[in-house]
Amino acid sequence: MEATLFYILALVTLVGTGFAITARQAVRAIVYLVNSFFALALIFYLLGAPLVAAFEVIIYAGAIMVLFLFVIMMLDLGHPERMKSPRLVDWIPALVLVLVTAASVGVLAAQHHAQPLAAFHGISVRQFSQTLFQRYGVAVELVSLQLLFALVGAIYLGRRR
């Protein structure tokens, strides 16, 4: 049951992403991507990470993608006819790279036999939080500092002179 769900969600994610990266309009790309990220959040949940799934929805699909939308609208980039979209030639190196990567992964995959997870350990929120604040306290502080710096930097870059 869970496995079926996983494969369906994986398909949704891949298709959504595929549409997102080939969309002619940036706004459409964002919407496809939000869709794909929802599916990804569900996958996270399936993998026993409810907290990460929640953050995925809140931060990625909610905040970051909205930020993108804001910028697109602020800069008035929503007109596909004024934007250059990649020609077919531009896709060639990308496709080559993707093929190489995919082939490598395929080669690696061929040697590896899928083994189901032996025993699933769901990670409770309590366990997650304990690890986060006890073992990685310093990292939390550093990340908060980093967010502060990003804030200052963004304000500095964005102010009008």
Partner: peptide, 10 residues
């Protein structure tokens, strides 16, 4: 990166 990956696969 692709080269490295290809090398590892090979």
């Amino acid at each position: 990166g692709a080269l490295l990956l290809g090398y590892l696969a090979w």
